[in-house]
Design a protein around this nucleic acid. Structure first.
Lengths: 207, 207
DNA sequence: GCGTAAACTTGCACATCGTGCAAGAAGATG
DNA sequence: CATCTTCTTGCACGATGTGCAAGTTTACGC
């Protein structure tokens, strides 16, 4: 056993995983996303393609450097039961924070992903794909709260979950563009303001 | 030459394309999206897999019944040059309308897609994928307008384009859930209201 | 109606991504 | 050190998607 109680195995796994992500980033930068094959990536790191898929579910997972992720169960449970404040918008904002607080890729890795997304537009929807599992969980949580509150609109859970994702994403981008100081959650207000600017005033109630 | 000036060729192409879409829908309903192969679809219609890909870029395109699409060039140009009203939020709303006005799948096909998305959650991000091309065009248009107005936020074009997409999507869902009478654009206000409910009041200006 | 050209289908080969399986190799443990 | 556990790897294969060219089906002009 060594530093942090990690055995040689675990240390090697982490290093290999990092190497695969780094190689993916280099190659995508050099050649473009569609031109880079999984085999290319593995050649550069010196592992087999079969091993690559032991680490990542897909090639795109390596681009984003994803680790299994979800969001805070406790936050979710509080939200589903009408908390923490009882105000939907305010409480939804805690979902945004929760998403941003959850351990994810490092600062550097986030920066790389953001830069790659600028030159590889298709990565945008791929990012949404990564969000699919969390979105479904989140929609379930949101649905429970809305059922409890007997809200009527069926589209709502999806819209809320999507808004959470995009606000979180926007906040992260703003944070990165501002130099990566502090934390993405510091930019949630700015993301909300951006969205309000786009939306304008609320339409009058339905007749 | 026959009805509508369409030759036998064109009529057969349309029928074949419709048949492929219908077969895709049936099979996905019966077996689930991931279980249905392109070969299954082609077997049901009686064409080769190679032909399938003459009609659709991907299997998912057949699920959504997509046709090449974009949005109104004239609307885009007006928006990019600061119009039609000069107010960003109001003008962005014309983008939503433009997206909903553009010829797309039939009413029935939209309904099928919405229903399939309920049982196949992964279709959500696939829908985003289909939006990728339009989104890039739209972001370009939005970027031109913002440059013209010297707006600072770099994330804005993407956020606006995404908001347009989701508002349009929400309006369509609300329209469908309300029985498909009228037109999805009749539900834009409702979609905006939903989003406002989620967002709550605008945060104070940055200090 | 016929000959020719254009458009389309299809078979084939192949690339790439992703998955299951099992043998062999590398750590961990007592 | 022996044994067990974990992981890598090679292999085979399925599914999606792409290029190419032969064969078939329409369209067109005479």
């Amino acid at each position: 056993m060594q530093e942090d109680g990690l055995g040689l195995r675990e240390r090697k796994k982490r290093a290999r995983r990092d190497a695969l992500i780094d190689a993916t980033h280099e190659l995508v930068r050099e050649q473009g996303l569609e031109q880079v094959t999984v085999e290319d990536i593995c050649d550069r790191v010196g592992v087999s393609v079969r091993t690559f898929f032991n680490y990542f579910d897909s090639k795109i997972d390596a681009v984003f450097g994803v680790a299994p992720t979800t969001f805070d169960r406790q936050v979710a449970e509080v939200y589903a039961t009408g908390g923490p404040t009882g105000d939907l918008a305010t409480d939804t904002r805690t979902l945004v924070s929760a998403l941003l607080e959850f351990p994810g890729p490092s600062k550097e890795r986030v920066g790389v992903a953001i830069e790659l997304m600028k030159v590889e537009p298709t990565l945008f929807s791929r990012h949404m794909e990564l969000f699919d599992a969390i979105r479904q969980e989140m929609q379930s949580v949101i649905g429970r709260r809305l059922d409890r509150e007997r809200a009527e609109a069926a589209a709502r859970p999806e819209l809320i979950a999507v808004a959470v994702f995009h606000i979180a994403r926007c906040a992260t981008t703003l944070w990165y563009e501002a130099g990566s100081a502090g934390h993405p959650r510091d930019y949630i207000d700015a993301a909300y303001r951006d969205l309000h600017t786009v939306l304008g005033p609320q339409p009058p109630p339905a007749s």
